[in-house]
Design a protein around this nucleic acid. Structure first.
Length: 206
DNA sequence: GGTAGGATGGGCT
DNA sequence: GCCCATCCTACCC
């Protein structure tokens, strides 16, 4: 499979919601594996109390306040890692959580990394599954995704995607804001097999 | 088809 | 000491 050019830093130096929507349909590439980004969430600065940056700069959150186009990778629930890409001009917090991919290259490698997956739709249909399938770890925290080995590229042929906005998954603060974005109808988004947003009182998406 | 419960460790109050 | 931007297995329709 052929890919288009790497996204430039200027793509990320924009409002976080624009970047979250704009990343849908792009390709996340790491070594031999690649996938089409089909689900994202925006984590804003300011009043967004669900954001890790909401309590200010700490050792963990420093990268979110830094230059756009770098990875913010953190450990969740003691076991899984989540990949974000930093947005906004340097000094202003904001990042996009990558939540699901449609596998596009290296699918056999992803299957080996994701032994529990029973079908292609399970390989990267959640933020923890995505990092496992793509072999992304906290070692990538701070990495520049405008320069390899972990990069985001344009697809080989540009195509329009229809975007659907819903509440974010698995949070309690600001749970009603429509800051999760998916490609409408895509089978590789999270929560299709198990039902959306278990564990909190989210309304289901239409 | 569906849901409940547990694993597991770093960050922050 | 408590809280997580989660996932998997077991178990129940």
């Amino acid at each position: 499979m052929r890919f288009g050019p790497i996204l430039k830093r200027s793509f990320y130096e924009r409002p976080t919601v624009e970047v979250a929507r704009g990343l849908l349909g792009k390709l996340l590439v790491h070594g031999p594996t690649a996938g089409i980004i089909v689900e994202t969430e925006a984590y804003l600065g300011g009043d967004d109390l669900a954001s890790h940056s909401a309590r200010g700069i700490t050792d963990r959150t420093r990268v979110i306040f830094g230059e756009a186009g770098h990875a913010y990778v953190y450990l969740i629930y003691g076991m899984y890692e989540c990949l974000n890409i930093v947005c906004e001009p340097a000094g202003k917090p904001g990042c996009v959580l990558l939540r699901a991919l449609e596998p596009a290259a290296g699918t056999g490698i992803m299957e080996r990394r994701r032994a529990a997956a029973r079908k292609p739709e399970d390989l990267a249909s959640g933020p923890g599954k995505l990092t496992l399938a793509m072999a992304i770890t906290r070692a990538h925290n701070g990495a520049d995704v405008t320069r390899g080995p972990l990069v985001v590229r344009e697809p080989a042929a540009r195509q329009e995607v229809e975007i659907q906005a819903t509440p974010r998954i698995g949070i309690s603060q600001c749970a009603d804001l429509p800051l999760r974005f998916v490609i409408r109808g895509n089978r590789f988004v999270s929560g299709v097999a198990q039902g959306a947003a278990r564990g909190s009182a989210h309304r289901l998406e239409v």
